[in-house]
Design a protein around this nucleic acid. Structure first.
Lengths: 190, 190
DNA sequence: GAATTCATGTAACTTGTTACATGATTTA
DNA sequence: TAAATCATGTAACAAGTTACATGAATTC
């Protein structure tokens, strides 16, 4: 129960459509919250039923109808309540298929693992570039349309994503070194 | 669909009960895969129905009956298939309530966020100690009962957890510094 | 003319969480 | 004697994924 809260949070900035939310999440919130479009629409219906949000139909010539959602007073209260209530354990539970496979790596050829870890490094490098781009967009445009307090926290999270990606690249490189040593050792002593 | 695979993986080491699996996951796999006991038992039934695992009832005087599960040939094949098939995107989707709350931090008092981030740092420090302990256990006992190839990969993941925890501590401390500057600035210029 | 973006959603299914229940043995 | 550990599960619910459907407008 937290996609609901993310939606309320986005609507606390400004009214938007489900589609807008999906895009917003995909290139910012995305780093720590993901949702399928279908899930968003379902949640929007649920939130509207509870009276936490409402929508206005926007019809324009030569365009599809858009349901522009906005947050209600009740919604703001609910969001504030949730926001103030931090969980006891701040580390979320993880489900990481990649790491699980590495965990059972002894049942795979070392070369295969080497290959997957180098893929992992490349993925993290791409992530760094994506973070650069988000920062660029925030710095260039959002400063004008968003309040500096918001930008302050977005930057903190941006730093977090950056440090995590960098650390994982370093880790991956260390893994490659160790794996290469292992492969060499296997060659000498089969 | 991956708790099923983690269970098969654990059973590829040795036969065990659902209870054993829960404990094993809680202090190793736990860092990248979590499961409730109830979920494990449900999955065990499902896997048995599919013929991927089977169990033997172990009755002992003065103890409860244990269902000792073991993997079948079919189960081994299924596990190997899954293990070789890495996902295209290696980064799992995240659901991080803490980060989401920081994202909307502009709607909270800075002092509250400061407090939560220091809690976060303490949590990560505790995590580091937990990793130390796992390493100690692996180094002291598991070398004898587990094959060195397995220990090799467990150590790689241990390094990963360690570097992540350390990075997040560093990040948290940087946040505190910036927040303190912000608080001070607000004092000067209210 | 084909692919992509905008925009909405339903249905079926799979996973994950929470609460509850039971009962023996072992340790503090 | 109370709490913790061992050991198993069921039921109800909440959340997430996948596949499918529709259709207009825009860009290549």
């Amino acid at each position: 129960m937290s996609l609901a809260q993310s939606i309320l949070g986005l609507l606390s900035y400004e009214p938007m459509t489900g589609y807008d939310m999906k895009r917003f999440m995909d290139n910012s919130l995305n780093f720590f919250w993901t949702a399928q479009a279908s899930q968003i629409y379902r949640e929007l219906s649920a939130l509207e039923k509870k009276g936490l949000i409402a929508h206005q139909l926007e019809t324009a010539e030569g365009r599809m109808d858009r349901k522009v959602y906005h947050i209600t007073e009740k919604g703001r209260e609910e969001f504030a309540r949730w926001l103030h209530d931090f969980p006891e354990t701040l580390t979320p539970s993880t489900r990481d298929e990649f790491s699980t496979k590495i965990f059972f790596g002894s049942q795979l050829p070392l070369e295969e693992i080497r290959f997957q870890i180098s893929r992992y490094i490349r993925e993290k490098e791409a992530e760094l570039k994506a973070i650069d781009y988000v920062d660029y967009v925030i710095g260039k445009y959002s400063q004008r349309i968003h309040r500096p307090e918001e930008v302050f926290f977005w930057n903190l999270l941006s730093k977090r994503n950056r440090i995590l990606a960098k650390s994982l690249i370093t880790w991956g490189q260390e893994c490659l070194t160790e794996i290469d040593q292992q492969i060499e050792a296997n060659h000498r002593d089969p």
